[in-house]
Structures are given as C-alpha cells and as structure tokens.
Amino acid sequence: MTATDVVRDATAPGPMAPRPFRVVARRQDTHDTATLDLIPLYGEQAKWRSGQFMMLYAFGVGEIAVSISGGALPGEPLRHTIRDVGAVSHALVSSQVGDVIGVRGPFGTSWDAMDAVGGDVMFIAGGIGLAPLRPSILEAMRRRGEFRHVILLYGSRPGEGFLFTDEIEDWERNHGFTVHQGVRAGLAAVTSAPTFDPDHLLTLACGPDIMMEVAAKTLVGKGVPADKVRLSMERSMHCGIGLCGHCQMREAFLCVDGPVFNYDQLIPLLATEEL
C-alpha cells in the first residue's frame, strides 16, 4: 500500500462501537449463571451463526467476549448465557429485564455442525462450555433425522451445577440424544462402548483447554480424524476483530481465525505450553 490508497469511511460507526440492546428476558440458570435475551434498541436484530461470539458491554464497567447460546433461526432474540466470574460478567449477570447493554458482533468462526449430516455427532461440554454449543445442539435437534447418533457428554465441576437441565431431558427423551451427564463426567463413558462410527463422527467440544485437549487426543486415538474434532478456544480478548493482539496463539488470532478450530490446526499450538 502506498501513502495514498488507504480507504476510509468516515461516517460509518467503527467496529469498536457497541450497539445498545435491551434485556427482554432473564433466567437464572445456576447460582452464578444467567441467560439473557436481547433485542436491539435501534435497527435490525443481529444475524449470527452457531459458535460465534459477541463482545458484551456493561455500561461503564467494561466489555467481555461471550458466545451466543441461542438458536440462529431468523426472528430469535439474541441469547447469551453468562457465568459471573469477575467485574464485567457480574454486571451482565446482574442486569434485569429492561436494562440496556452494549453489543458488538457477531465475531469468529462457526461450529458448522451440519457438516456431520449423514453421520454421528458428539457434543462435549465442560461447565459453561455447554452454552456456546447450544445453538448447534438445537440445530441437531431440529434436523435430528439427518444424523445417526447424537451424543452429548456434559461434565461440570463439583458445586458448579448444570445448565439447561430441562432441555437436556427433552433432548434425551424426545429427540433420541444419548446423554452422559455428571460431575466430572469422563469420555470413558462414551468410548468404552462406542455407539459411534469413528470415520463418520463430528465432535464439537467446548470447555477448559485441558479437558478439550484430552478429549481430542482420546478420540484421535480411537481413530477419529483430527479435522473432525472441533474445539472452541478461549483467550483474553479486547477487540474481537483481530486488531488488539491479545488473543494470539502463535499465528492464530483466536477471535477471527477461531474461536472454533479443527483440532488438526491446534495440535502444533497446544503442543507447547504457555503459547
């Protein structure tokens, strides 16, 4: 680029400016986690794909990355499930129906669960990690007939509680999901007597790094191709748009190249500690 050809649109709001959204519904999921439904004060509802995230802004407190936990069908409110762990998440979780919060996004890559059509799909969630998976789980539920086995493995830490328990029951009872849920639920439950076909299994995992890595390694060990295991990664994020540098893992910007990655892309990045 030379000195003269930088393009600029001076009137459009920059990608760092949040849009105000109103909380239209709020549900307390566990002692520290709540789900908010949001609609924009002005303009159109955002459009997103499953697996993407938004930067949510609590007025005067700060901004954090939060995955979308609601379905991606047109007309649905924007839904987020947030765990209270610090100043910003606390402010968001504490917001009530009628309050206004800021939204930027959607950002990042998608789960693309429909890649598994015709085969088996497995969701592996650790704790709050079930929330980012929910849009894809809903997709699988709505189009259940197009998949063979649908498996949900959902573990949480002691005392953490479980999200969406009523829905999980529905998925299991009415939609033929195989559900393994429990405190510290392990992959052994699934792999000891596998119902899936390793060659036709797509796995989507979201949870702590170490949990996802162990799961991915185990599955690859059972013959699942590494590019058929997708992980949603979490790092510090200040911009969500590839500019601030916080979310980097070697060459990857987790905010634009991720958060959802195929495991084969992550193998070299997870091989080194503190990358």
């Binding site: 005067g60 407190v61 700060g62 610090g86 100043a87 910003v88 606390h90 402010a91």
Partner: peptide, 11 residues
C-alpha cells in the same frame, strides 16, 4: 480511582 471503581462495580 480504586474507591470510585469499587463504588461503581468496575475493575
């Protein structure tokens, strides 16, 4: 700054 931040619930 610390007093205002805690009073306002931010970091």
């Amino acid at each position: 700054e610390v007093i205002s931040a805690f009073a306002q619930g931010r970091r």
